[in-house]
Nucleic acid binder design. Structure first.
Lengths: 193, 193
DNA sequence: GTCTATACAGTGATAGAC
DNA sequence: GTCTATCACTGTATAGAC
């Protein structure tokens, strides 16, 4: 319901009514509405991270040594764009929900996302630094940040580029976005310092 | 107040009390709280667009013909990252507010941003297509979308990359971000199809 | 037309009965 | 542990004064 109608758009009364439990159940079991959001997201995000790290492990086994930059980017971005899409009917809304929390101002959500994602992101950042030994490490960090921006904006997109391009592009298509993102980001990462 | 404490975090009673007017004033003059947000943002955004278009006009007069890709990217990104920073003390919060609305789900804000920004964005997109005649136009549109993502994420950032990099990078510094963004994005745009 | 006071239906949270 | 009743608060609507 959070994914479908948004966190703010979903009242605790909607949830408890759908679950056929008492109004106070959420506050009793999760402390607050935010606590419930945190619990819901922590579970989904944890599995996404596992998928990411599985991809990272496969990169290390690949033919290129050190792993190709493109492989690393794909392993990082792909689960974020498509995880949740196949499993469950509200997958797309769920992907958007995750992305929207990533740009949220509220401290609670930022701490949750940091706790869940930072460890694996740091490992990817280190791997990409190793794949680009000629570049200053801090510059790679900046570029990693730009990558997160492009990735999250693809997830969150709900019509911006369709509007600008008069419908020529559907940015919410994960395969299409990934196919264009990887060469774009790889070239950006490889730009001379 | 919207910029400082967020839209949701600012009640209409806070605003009317600070303005020393009656509670009903907002709904009378702007229809609703959303209407007030729209009015506040429309004014700020309009001036940003003007700054952007001034930069686009200067590109056309520059020594490169057609304009250098880097010039175009800078003219597009730079006002978005820094406009409002100098004017007024809440400039930084204002930049974040704009960016957060860009990823907002609610239809009202998306329509407002589309109405305000799409026209000028479309002109930049066409200019970039002209600067990259070897690339399929649709691919340039995709890459323009990725650029918007990186740009907006720099605006909205509130500690993500600081956390991952253990404080090495301050992504909210507009000059630092712009200096790294332009070569990154230019290389991404120029990647072979 | 503009401003005021007040009422209303909604929210999330919670003290206390069972 | 669970549930009910109630709390403080939100944005909005409206009747009436100026």
């Amino acid at each position: 319901m959070f994914a479908a109608r948004g966190v703010a758009g979903t009242g605790v009364r909607d949830i408890t009514a759908a679950a056929e439990v008492n109004l106070a159940a959420i506050n009793y079991h999760f402390g607050s509405k935010e606590g419930l959001v945190e619990a819901v997201l922590a579970r989904s995000a944890q599995r996404l991270v596992e998928e990411r790290l599985k991809g990272l492990a496969e990169c290390a086994e690949g033919p290129g040594r050190p792993p190709m930059l493109e492989q690393l980017i794909s392993a990082y971005v792909s689960p974020s764009l498509s995880y949740g899409r196949e499993a469950g009917m509200d997958g797309v809304a769920f992907i958007r929900l995750r992305a929207r929390l990533a740009v949220e101002s509220e401290e609670v959500y930022r701490r949750l996302l940091a706790r869940t994602f930072d460890e694996s992101s740091r490992r990817f950042l280190e791997a990409i630094k190793a794949a680009l030994p000629a570049l200053p490490p801090d510059l790679v960090t900046w570029r990693f940040h730009f990558m997160m921006g492009s990735m999250i904006f693809c997830q969150v997109d709900n019509g911006r580029i369709q509007s600008i391009s008069e419908g020529a592009i559907d940015a919410s298509d994960p395969e299409g976005a990934l196919a264009r993102l990887i060469p774009f980001l790889a070239a950006g990462f490889r730009a001379p310092p």
